[in-house]
Design a protein around this nucleic acid. Structure first.
Lengths: 204, 204, 204, 204
DNA sequence: GATGAATGAGGCTTCATTCAT
DNA sequence: CATGAATGAAGCCTCATTCAT
């Protein structure tokens, strides 16, 4: 059990580092966070960070992998049982909502992240896209949704959500965009893609 | 009149600096461009940049103001005579298209720019929003468009366009997102907000 | 006898460390080899190295002592039965040849090594010098060799050999200087110190 | 003349840096000297060093180029008028002697220097080799010198000199190997390569 | 006003060594 | 003893900004 203890210790330290990095990334931005900030936040020495992550890029990438996976999983779970688009979108937002500050940072700094980190990000989006497309396909097939390319419907939705997140400081300075606008976004989006959308515009 | 000459010279130097900065920002990113890069590109000394702009932030802000204003004006002009939403969206994209590399950078680095730059950015968006809302209002009133909040329709459109620009490296590695996808985006978006949208998907 | 086992184990671990260090020193250089490289190569933990050698300097010194002694012994053996200078020089080179990569490193990094290591180095050279001087003395006495101070003859020979080793990357990129040039060096050197040397250059 | 002043200033700073680096390299070794040591010795800030030399490697290379060229030139000049080998060797040593501490460092750290620096070093040696070969060729032709390959004669001489320099701490702790042994080395070497060398070994 | 050399704070990374288990 | 996680001093390099000319 001695070994077990040491190993546990190491795993814990690494987890602490990942978690503190995640917190700092969420609050002050990813590229704005220095390695030494993370060390300090985790209560370890500067060098320790490098004992766990070879380079800053690798740390960033691993944080994104770790928490991105959580976000994707959360969405995946929620999406698994979804019958209708409304539910899926709500699940998507719920998945994001749990990690909103971090996710928003990912959206904001997207193109400035190390390439590997970007790959991770893209694969997260792909997972979501997959679920979305399945449901959308079904809804289009059943005539519930307007017939537009799946990728377009997806991009519209994601673009909308990301737009709110990127401009979160304007929309929700308290930092809870999803909580504040989530339902409305789903509602409006659904109205937009429903075949009978736009009741207010009744043909006379 | 000698002074006049000097002043002219000064104005020209400043304009050169702004223009070279704009070019560099477009090609290599805003925060990736060093002050000395700009000086070199403009053929002046490193220190001269600081004679015209007190700080890097101020230079960035001023570039964004200058060229943002052009983008907004261009869009404004194009939008001014638009009767229908299609035309407006096309005009919007045309306005962006002329400055795509720079505009894309603005979208990508948006939140990492100096706060004052953000204000400029917001005002660009406002100009567009104004036109958009006018036309959208009319179309909703006439029953051509689905009845959703104007801000939502606008955010959806802008979110969509920005999503394509941010991911321009994936969508159009050659760097011409608007040219490649512009028409499609307008088409699909219009189908989505038309009251009779999605007819093509009608079952039997 | 349990202790004996333990001690045996300990001795073996240390030997492994010395040997792996020797190998790494030979292939990548002495000062370029990290303590952790050695630990890894020996299949022990990083800390274990420090259980056997208090400091890096002491490890280096001990490796040089151990293998330097082997080189010296080998040369001593080969030199022991030499009647003539040719044989001695060949023996010297043979002794080096067995350990060329390591010996070359010693020559290359010589003055950058810990002081104690230098002492070892000097004593290796002394062993060779002793044999050399004996044979040289005899040959000078018998008129076979030119009459120059023994130390000069020795330094000339060693300087020559070391010059080839230090520049081994230029002379023999495959890393076998002794094999490639050994015979030639002996031949030429002998011609140089023979009283009748240079006959081949006689005019008319 | 204003420009002249500034330019002069810059050139002077760079020269100071090169010179201080040269001194530090001479006294404490090349790879042991930190960039900040040089800055401090030159009385400028740390960053200034990097304003003049892009990287540490480039600084090292440039110091070696600058002072290596001086050494080579000195030898070249002295060698230009040499009729006999004795004079050439003396000139070679004189060239080295002026810069002995630095030259010795070059010999000692040779293989540990950045590749470009090594190239410079090799080209210095080539210049010397050229002169040597010319004179040696002539002397062999006239039957004054033993007939051995030019490269061997050269390598023997250089190997000998470098051997004394590398072991300067043993031969001449006060740091003046050339002054102390130069004449003897030339004498003995000449005796060795003279056709009539080794009088002491008179044929009976 | 223009110049450009100098500044120096800021940040990443390496690795010998220690020490609790 | 062995282990290996943690330490922290050391060193390289960048670049916005200043200021004497």
């Amino acid at each position: 059990m001695k070994k077990s203890n040491r190993q546990l210790q190491k795993v814990q330290t690494k987890e602490t580092l990942l978690n503190k990095a995640y917190q700092l990334f969420s609050s002050q931005g990813i590229m704005n966070t220095r390695m030494s900030d993370i060390a300090q936040a985790a209560g370890v020495s500067h060098g320790t960070v490098f004992a766990h992550f070879q380079t800053q890029e690798m740390l960033i990438t691993e944080v994104i992998e770790t928490y991105g996976e959580k976000i994707a999983r959360r969405t995946h779970e929620a999406a698994g049982t979804c019958e209708h688009m409304e539910e899926l979108l709500a699940a998507h937002l719920a998945g994001i909502g749990e990690f909103e500050p971090f996710y928003a940072r990912l959206v904001i700094e997207n193109r400035l992240l190390p390439p590997e980190a970007r790959d991770v990000w893209v694969s997260i989006q792909s997972a979501i896209s997959f679920h979305f497309s399945q449901v959308a396909q079904r809804e289009i097939g059943s005539g519930q949704s307007i017939d537009l390319p799946l990728y377009f419907l997806f991009n519209t939705w994601v673009g909308l959500v990301h737009y709110y997140l990127v401009n979160g400081d304007l929309f929700a300075p308290e930092g809870n965009v999803v909580g504040r606008y989530g339902d409305t976004l789903v509602d409006h989006y659904m109205k937009m893609i429903r075949r009978d959308g736009g009741k207010g515009g009744e043909k006379e």
